[in-house]
């Protein structure tokens, strides 16, 4: 059965363009033209990935994302026409896994969707493994992270970054290795690593945990845990 992508955008032309491109790539498409109908469509279709426009009407995309994140870790790719929104989207509390700026090429949309879908599949295929480092426990099978035994909510991207660091607890992981590991063959802006690591670090700190994802200037990041 085809994997399902939910496209939430109030512009019919955009939904249609994305729909045609992704159908050609073998995906099943569900469309919604507003935040509330998008959340309803999520419940009705359990999509494998969500493309979410920021500039929706009565309920904007960030609010839709917050509501979806309370329900699911399904990957979310933001669509935005505003380059000044990008740092906010990937760096702070929005909860998205990636973003695409409008105007976009249909090929880029397909490549990004393929990349995130493959990440999910890799995660699903991994054998059950639990990693522990200091107060942090990460269970790849349950897709759960605990800090001192308490659940810590992370997005898919934050989870994958933490996993990459916990798999290599005693060495620095280069920015390129993290890009390849988490984003696959997407060759986008490596700035995304920095902002997602920053968001991961802030979440762990806010929950009372140690510093994780410590930057090693000019090289990459190490797990850290140095308090």
């Amino acid at each position: 059965m085809s994997e399902t992508v939910l496209v939430i955008d109030d512009q019919a032309d955009v939904r249609q363009l994305i729909g045609v491109a992704l159908k050609e790539a073998g995906y099943r498409i569900v469309e919604a033209d507003s935040g509330p109908t998008g959340i309803d469509a999520y419940h009705a279709n359990a999509p494998d990935l969500i493309l979410l426009d920021i500039g929706l009407g009565s309920m904007d995309g960030l609010e839709v994302c917050r509501q979806l994140r309370a329900l699911t870790t399904t990957p979310i790719i933001f669509l935005t026409s505003r380059t000044d929104e990008v740092d906010e989207l990937v760096g702070f509390a929005a909860g998205g896994d990636d973003y695409i700026t409008k105007p976009f090429s249909p090929k880029v949309v397909v490549a990004r969707v393929n990349s995130l879908m493959r990440r999910n599949q890799r995660g699903d295929e991994n054998s059950k493994t639990v990693y522990t480092a200091g107060p942090i426990t990460l269970d790849t099978d349950a897709h759960e992270v605990q800090l001192d035994g308490e659940p810590l909510e992370l997005t898919r991207t934050e989870f994958d970054l933490l996993l990459a660091l916990m798999e290599n607890p005693s060495r620095v992981v280069t920015r390129e290795a993290l890009l390849q590991r988490v984003w696959g063959d997407w060759y986008g802006d490596s700035h995304v690593v920095e902002v997602h690591i920053s968001r991961l670090r802030n979440k762990v700190k806010k929950a009372g945990g140690p510093s994780v994802g410590v930057a090693v200037r000019g090289v990459g990041y190490k797990l850290g845990l140095d308090g």
């Binding site: 109030d10 955009v14 026409s81």
Partner: peptide, 14 residues
Amino acid sequence: PEVAHAVSGNVGSY
């Protein structure tokens, strides 16, 4: 402003 914002994304993507 909002309409131009949406329209720019559409015509560019097409």
